[in-house]
Design a protein around this nucleic acid. Structure first.
Length: 123
RNA sequence: CCAGACGGUUGGACGACCGCUGUCGGAUGCAAAUCCGGUGGAGGAAAGUCCGGGCUCCACGGAGAUACGGUGCCGGUUAACGACCGGCGGGGGCGACCCCAGGGACAGUGCCACAGAAAACAAACCGCCAGGACCGGAUCUCCUUCGGGAAAGCCGCUUCAGGCAAGGGUGAAACGGUGCGGUAAGAGCGCACCGCGCUUCUGGUAACAGCGGCGGCAGGGCAAACCCCACCGGGAGCAAGACCGAAUAGGAGCGGCCGGCGGCUGCGAAAGCAGUGACGCAGGGGCAUUUCCGCCCUGUCGCUCGGGUUGGUCGCGCGAGGCGUGCAGCAAUGUAUGCCCCAGAGGAAUGGUCGUCUCGUGCCUCGGCACGAACAGAACCCGGCUUACAGACCGUCUGGCAAU
């Protein structure tokens, strides 16, 4: 297990969260949408120079609260790890969990997000 | 050893890396913050939201009545309860044990389908019974003109007015059951036992139980139909509620009162008087404080109405608290004492990934390889109840089998 280089991580903090319902609705109606095996991505470019923000949506259709918690936590962790190395600029991202999000291999899940960002024209 | 009953505990373990959040300490910084280190971070049900409380706001003079809702054997426990514990009664099981919405049906109203004669003033469909009348039959006796006639009891049919409720049949249920006596036939009509009601005595705090006595016997079921009786109960809920922001806020309407200067309107030759709440000034207030500048509001008092409640802080975790031990109690529980501080989010943290082990299932070369890890996620807190739950472990007891 290779220890992290102290100067390489650059102490990039976790991305800000989307919190307002109106922000979610705006991303859904005006943003671009990309569907992958493990998730659905909605992306809305803001062009205001502020850092990217991420929101998560897991509906009750996916399962009970334990299942929904686990689904959202995997998405959250995958997004955190990916956005640490990929700069997406000023954009609002909404990650929507699906049934497969829970069982998808973690590396594949990260790759799903990466390719969805490309499809949505963010990167 | 097998089968079973009851109670309790537990609810995967360890490590590495990368994270989130509360808190403590330190460093940097004017500050906001950032970094480093330590430490805490989901459940037995966190669930359903079915009861009971704390807490908060609203309402409320006392007492009673009524309405509505709830509870309902007895005693105890508890802050309280519809909970719990111990009993009682009824039912089930060979047993350990389990189940029960368990006050009142002589206060009243109502319902009881189908079947059945009848479902609640008691009554009588098929029946059973002695009697009267008519008819028929055989038998005995008497009379005879030998054709037959008379009379008696018996049997049968029909019918009349009665007695009866044993038997049949219907039903979940029909004025208690079995047996013997009794009778025309029967019937608690009489008797014995059982059941039921009342009751002396005994035991028990009580529910109730036991022994005895008396009564031939009250009277169907449903109160989870209304109802009656006893007891209990204000309403809404942390999106409660409080503060900050922004506070002396500010806006609209109505009314009262007052009027520094100018302006405007009316009267007047003028001075002035009256009106007009604002167009300007002065004065006053706010933007943390002082000076200047700037911006905003503004006569004052009262009443009414509407907008704003995307933000921040508190409420918010030392509590009917947890663990251990002693004592009291059959127990629920109480009490004494020692130790401990044990989540606090807010699109909502409590995690993500990988590895080793554990357990389960499947496959087979018997040692590995795959797949899987019960139910389920705090949201103000506490006591219960209910529901979901893979597996593992412990204790007590019952019925068998075997051995001693």
């Amino acid at each position: 297990m290779a220890p992290d280089q102290p100067n390489m991580a650059a102490a990039k903090p976790a991305p800000q969260r989307l919190k307002q319902r109106s922000e979610f609705l705006r991303a859904a109606s005006k943003g671009r949408k990309a569907v992958a095996n493990g998730l659905v991505l909605q992306a809305l470019r803001r062009d205001d120079g502020l850092p990217a923000r991420v929101g998560f949506t897991v509906t009750k259709k996916v399962g009970n609260s334990v299942v929904r918690n686990r689904t959202r936590r995997r998405l959250k962790e995958a997004a955190r790890l990916l956005l640490r190395e990929v700069d997406v600029g000023s954009v609002d991202l909404v990650l929507i969990g699906r049934d497969a999000t829970r069982s998808r291999p973690f590396a594949a899940l990260i790759d799903d997000i990466r390719r969805s960002l490309g499809k949505a024209g963010v990167v």
